[in-house]
Nucleic acid binder design. Structure first.
Lengths: 143, 143
DNA sequence: AAGATTTGAGACTCTTTATTCTTAAATACG
DNA sequence: CGTATTTAAGAATAAAGAGTCTCAAATCTT
């Protein structure tokens, strides 16, 4: 599995918020309901994004979460690293510690190319790019 | 994590066997010792490769495991799918069931390209290619 | 035949991830 | 002030992955 379940949920929720029309905070309950997730579980995941400075939250009536910055300034890699950590973009495919230029594993060179491409994809894609490309055209966030 | 720990171990062991000079079966105990793994655990993992027809095994003294086919005819993807299953090369990055051409998730198009590249890498790379490229040049399989 | 070696199979434990539940804190509104 | 709403925090539970242990089956050697 490329991303953990928590990370999948976090990305989907972040995209949901990016695509949300209304100004102001979106209640987690609404997101979880629309995306078919447990509200409790999603709350926990989104707290990580809040702590990472990607989201901001507000308690009480009319509260919820919102992007802490414009969607155009949130790259996917921030969400992934806030939840799953940076390992995916750093680790050796065979799990060998210290695998690198100097002591490469047999797969190092090939995997590095793909790993860098993957990192670039996540680093250069922002929430608003995905939100924009998803308007209308049958793209969906829920199962 | 891209590959499970079991899969990492399975790949490393398969590579070890491919690079093994001697004819005949290699005892799992020797592999596990050289690669720094638990023999019991490795045995369990290699059984999956034996059942998948990638390895053959032989019990008793002078027993062990060996490739069931020439290393030039074992693609990495066979090892990965025998242990982790085919999900990595099929699944939606956001975990949405039914994500595809017809109902793409926002990341579908971008991820599909990388996923296909990854699948191609695993499908076109064989054990002997890695073994050959690893002779001498400081490439290693153990931590 | 007896004993040593090595894989096969399955139960078992431990750790991590996933998920749920409970309580507290902040906010809005009457 | 009191109550409803909503996130925060952390305990508790469930499920999956990782790793260990025990015993059985096959094979070789003596």
């Amino acid at each position: 599995m490329l991303l953990s379940k928590s990370c999948e949920y976090g990305l989907r929720a972040a995209l949901y918020v990016s695509m949300s029309e209304k100004e102001g905070y979106v209640p987690i309950r609404v997101i979880s309901s629309d995306l078919g997730m447990s509200a409790h579980f999603l709350t926990k995941i989104l707290q990580q994004l809040t702590k990472a400075g990607i989201l901001k939250s507000f308690r009480g009536p009319n509260g919820g979460i919102a992007l802490a910055r414009p969607a155009s300034q949130v790259a996917l890699i921030e969400v992934v690293e806030a939840i799953d950590g940076p390992e995916l973009f750093r680790e050796c495919m065979l799990g060998l510690p210290g695998c690198g230029e100097r002591q490469p594993c047999p797969l190092h060179n090939k995997w590095m190319i793909e790993r860098e491409r993957l990192a670039a994809l996540f680093a250069t894609t922002t929430l608003d790019q995905l939100a924009d490309s998803s308007e209308g055209v049958g793209v969906r966030l829920a199962g």
